[in-house]
């Protein structure tokens, strides 16, 4: 008796629709501002995985692709957000079984005394099985200045699992670019096991403004025209300050702005508030920021 032959052709469009990847792309474009190279890269990876699925159905020899990734970029450029999305994408395409994300740092992996590290690392790995393990600031795992550091032990276990249980787990490392580069240099095993290196660019001012407006919109706030102009100026000032961390700085700034808005409203108790009053962010809420006081640029003094 002959074996029943597999299908000879597969409609790519049907396959594309079946996994619902179009939805994910749409969400990506809608929710993530900027990040062009990252989106391109995700599309490439998704395409590869889609073709891999088709090849499997056509019964062509396939080897499970290596999906471990490294995300490099400045703080606040959306590495964690994208990692979370990545887990969803990989799940939709059927390359991880559950699609959850376990986000850890050095503290969660490395123990404090001899014999503490291995169980701790394994515990985390077990939790991440069937999903994505996201290691933030991965370079802290390796501390060359202390040769008895337990980080090395954790790295060895990670490497071993990354190699032997490729079907069960996808590992994503994240961190600042220069330090990740150093980390990979001292741990060549990691570099060779990671297939995709994705670099996250910094946001430009216009993108940061879009992000700010998106964040406000989610919380049912809005800038008025003057506030918008003030915030554009605020972004320019904030960028030049140390410890600027892109979208995260914006989020923190907005939290403070909300605080000031609330304070301004409470300042005058004898009136009725309208819907517009509580949703509108006024220029003075932004201009009260310390930044404007400390850097008396001509623009700032004019606004004030």
């Amino acid at each position: 008796m002959l074996d029943t032959p597999g299908p000879t052709s597969i409609n790519l469009r049907e396959e594309f629709d079946a996994v619902g990847i179009a939805e994910v792309f749409k969400e990506l474009d809608r929710d993530l501002v900027g990040l062009k190279p990252v989106k391109t890269r995700i599309r490439e990876i998704a395409s590869l995985l889609l073709i891999e699925r088709v090849r499997k159905k056509l019964e062509l020899a396939t080897e499970p692709p290596t999906l471990h990734m490294s995300f490099t970029g400045s703080p606040g450029t959306g590495k964690t957000t994208v990692a979370l999305r990545m887990a969803g994408i990989l799940h939709k395409l059927g390359f991880v079984r559950r699609g959850h994300l376990v986000s850890v740092t050095r503290d969660d992996l490395v123990g404090q005394y001899i014999g503490h590290t291995a169980p701790k690392t394994k515990e985390i790995l077990k939790k991440a099985m069937g999903g994505v393990l996201f290691i933030d600031e991965a370079y802290y795992l390796y501390r060359p200045e202390n040769e008895r550091d337990y980080g090395q032990e954790s790295i060895e276990i990670l490497l071993q699992i990354m190699e032997t249980q490729r079907d069960d787990l996808v590992v994503i490392l994240a961190g600042y670019e220069d330090r990740m580069e150093k980390f990979f240099q001292s741990n060549p095993g990691f570099r060779s096991r990671i297939a995709h290196h994705v670099d996250f660019p910094d946001y430009d001012d216009a993108e940061l403004l879009t992000i700010a407006e998106l964040m406000l919109q989610e919380q049912n706030y809005a800038f008025d025209a003057a506030a918008r102009a003030a915030f554009i100026h605020y972004i320019q000032l904030r960028r030049s300050r140390p410890l600027f961390s892109n979208a995260r700085s914006i989020r923190n700034a907005l939290d403070r702005v909300r605080l000031r808005q609330a304070n301004r409203l409470v300042g005058n108790l004898d009136r009725d508030l309208t819907r517009d009053d509580v949703t509108r962010i006024a220029a003075e809420d932004i201009l009260a920021s310390r930044l404007f006081a400390e850097t008396p640029t001509p623009a700032a003094s004019r606004d004030a």
Binding site: P119, K127, A128, M129, G130, Q165
Partner: peptide
């Protein structure tokens, strides 16, 4: 070891 809480996928248990 301890009972395994907070695990999503059988692969983790099978490893143990």
């Amino acid at each position: 070891g301890l009972p395994m809480f907070d695990i999503r996928d059988a692969a983790g248990i099978m490893m143990e």
